[in-house]
């Protein structure tokens, strides 16, 4: 797990939740009488070393941090012989069933494609896309995928703007350009963080562009679009749309009661729990403990009912064909307004 502020916003709560779930399993007798053991290793500045520590300990499968910078050294260490669930990642290039590397959620193409479909379903035919640059993982791939899906669905991308992800909060130059071409009816798509989207929205509204629709990626959920000011109407694609009383909501409430503190990044937590259960499912399916054999079984998993939705790896390259929830802030509440694909 990465505990830096690059990925720590999901990996820190995830690494707290997974041992808690293992405790719950063990309290009920474990898996076929055997306890589930979890060891957390921080990647620090050497993900390969952290992975080696876990392999030396005897890990039968790994739950790893998102982003290639961390996941690729781990894969080099496992040599493809130990299943790796890249829990919170949507990076399509990290999925490769032939080397036992799996996403637990939809990838960027599915996520941005669903966002484009939702915008088209709202009757919107013009889009303004913010990107960090063509082909850049996540911050460029998502806008590329959105634009391709939007145009394929009959829409038009009227403006493509660049920005610095996770840093820019002054969009004056872009806003001036948009003000010159906007018809005040476009959808604005980006993979930007929540506070960037609301900053952009404020500046666009300052120019009189108050009729725009905003939709973003899972980054919005990760950075708290639900608690941002001026968030009304903003749509995003979370990994889990949580309602009161859902199994994941109950689990998170149980964690809070047990540990005395709530977990951050709630929408991502089901992915970590599902990663644990997918590994266990592989062991149960093969009735084995050898990592390579578990990996073979994981490749055949089909119709697994996870907390984040149904997960199938059979016939895929490690990217489960999951439905993408579309949430929107309506009357101050973050509510599920559509489910696309799957």
């Amino acid at each position: 797990m990465d505990f830096s502020d690059v990925v720590g916003f999901v990996d820190i709560p995830g690494s707290n939740l997974v041992p808690y779930v293992a405790e719950l399993i063990n309290c009920t007798g474990g898996i076929n009488g055997s306890p589930v053991e979890v060891r957390v290793a921080e990647v620090g500045d050497d993900a390969a070393l952290a992975a080696q520590e876990l392999l030396d300990w005897g890990a039968q499968f790994l739950i790893g941090p998102p982003f290639a910078d961390f996941a690729l050294p781990i894969l080099q260490t496992t040599g493809g012989n130990v299943p790796l669930f890249v829990a919170a990642s949507t990076e399509p290039t990290l999925a490769d069933a032939s080397i036992n590397s799996y996403l637990v959620t939809f990838d960027d193409f599915a996520m941005a494609g669903a966002a484009a479909q939702w915008a088209l379903d709202q009757g919107i035919t013009r889009a303004i896309v913010f990107t960090e640059g063509e082909g850049i993982p996540y911050t460029g791939v998502n806008p590329d995928a959105f634009a391709a899906a939007f145009v394929a669905g009959g829409g038009e991308v009227v403006s493509t703007q660049t920005y610095v992800w996770a840093a820019d909060t002054d969009f004056s130059a872009q806003v001036n350009e948009i003000a010159g071409i906007s018809e005040n009816n476009e959808v604005v798509f980006s993979a930007a963080l929540a506070f960037q989207v609301t900053a952009l929205r404020g500046q666009l509204e300052g120019q009189g562009l108050d009729g725009l629709t905003y939709i973003g990626t899972d980054a919005m959920d990760a950075t708290g679009i639900q608690v941002e000011a001026n968030n009304e109407g903003i749509a995003h694609t979370p990994h889990t749309s949580i309602s009161a009383g859902d199994p994941i909501d109950t689990l998170l409430a149980g964690y809070e009661a047990s540990r005395g503190e709530a977990l951050a990044s709630r929408g991502f937590m089901a992915l970590y729990v599902d990663s644990l259960f997918l590994g266990i499912q592989g062991m149960l399916d093969c009735d084995c403990t050898e990592p390579a054999d578990i990996g073979e079984a994981v490749k055949q998993i089909s119709g697994f009912q996870g907390l984040s939705g149904e997960i199938t790896y059979a016939g895929t390259n490690g990217i489960p064909p999951k439905a993408v929830p579309i949430n929107q802030i309506v009357n101050g509440e973050d509510v599920l307004v559509a489910t696309i694909g799957g």
Partner: peptide
């Protein structure tokens, strides 16, 4: 950086901007 990471949170913390910031 590490103090805030360890003892506060790795997550981005947000607060409201003044209403006039985006006025023109």
């Amino acid at each position: 950086s590490a103090i805030f990471l360890l003892y506060v949170s790795a997550s981005v913390k947000t607060f409201p901007r003044p209403g006039w910031v985006t006025n023109t």
